[in-house]
Design a protein around this nucleic acid. Sequence first.
DNA 1: GTCCATGCAAAGACTTTGCACTGGT
DNA 2: ACCAGTGCAAAGTCTTTGCATGGAC
Lengths: 140, 140
Amino acid sequence: MSRNTIQQDIICSTVKSMSTHPSPDEVFEALHKEYPSIGRATVYRVLNKLANKGEIKKVNLPHTADRFDFRTDDHIHIHCKKCNRVFDVDFHAIEGLIDYLDKVLTLNNPLKINGFEITGANFSFEGICKDCRHNKQDTV
Amino acid sequence: MSRNTIQQDIICSTVKSMSTHPSPDEVFEALHKEYPSIGRATVYRVLNKLANKGEIKKVNLPHTADRFDFRTDDHIHIHCKKCNRVFDVDFHAIEGLIDYLDKVLTLNNPLKINGFEITGANFSFEGICKDCRHNKQDTV
DNA sequence: GTCCATGCAAAGACTTTGCACTGGT
DNA sequence: ACCAGTGCAAAGTCTTTGCATGGAC
């Protein structure tokens, strides 16, 4: 039912080579020079398909467009509200948080919160990144 | 510098009367019959202004359009991925979470994570709500 | 009278979709 | 040969913006 195509391979390996949490358009731009025949709509469709298959992940951030992450392990993101970039949080003091969230989910799942079937929890930090703090005059 | 207008009063009291976490369009629809002269753009502008002033809050949910909340106290939301509605989580087992997040923020703020100045943390649950679970045949 | 806020429509950013065609199976 | 996947353009959704007008101060 599902077919393998060259486009899917190219899009998959492109997004997996980008550590910047790219938007679909950024993935499109990254492969467009080398593969100008691949269309924007295909990039959108394939990225969502890869995310549904679990090959990559959609980053769960409020108030910004979709981005994708080649890392599929649980980790936390921090979003710069000024330059709109996204970074991984790899700080030891955060380590307990994911375990805590897991515990909360386990305690309350399934169907314990307002009759919901909980399928996930979203957590992220937001702030101003190092670069933007050091360049306060810039609009970025 | 900032002026009070009738439109702002109407929009403010309208959103504060809605417990459904309305989108700007839903607020617009709610007041449009009684005040048909108020424009959609004004609703967008005023809602964001009210949120910036702290009179209301923007709900921080990934992968969905902006919604607003008349509640300004810290609490957690759960988002139904099927009908797209948002509910408050008022379940005692969740109570510790906000304190935990506060502690994490205090421990790591300021400038401790990747050189960031952290301005906030976003947390939400997602799942399928009671109504949608009981009406699985519906597209909703 | 000044000038911020509004209303409208247009534009913008992001994403999905209809349709004819291509290519994987 | 079938039909899922693709490419393109159009449309859709949500939000912002330019500009002339109106109302708060």
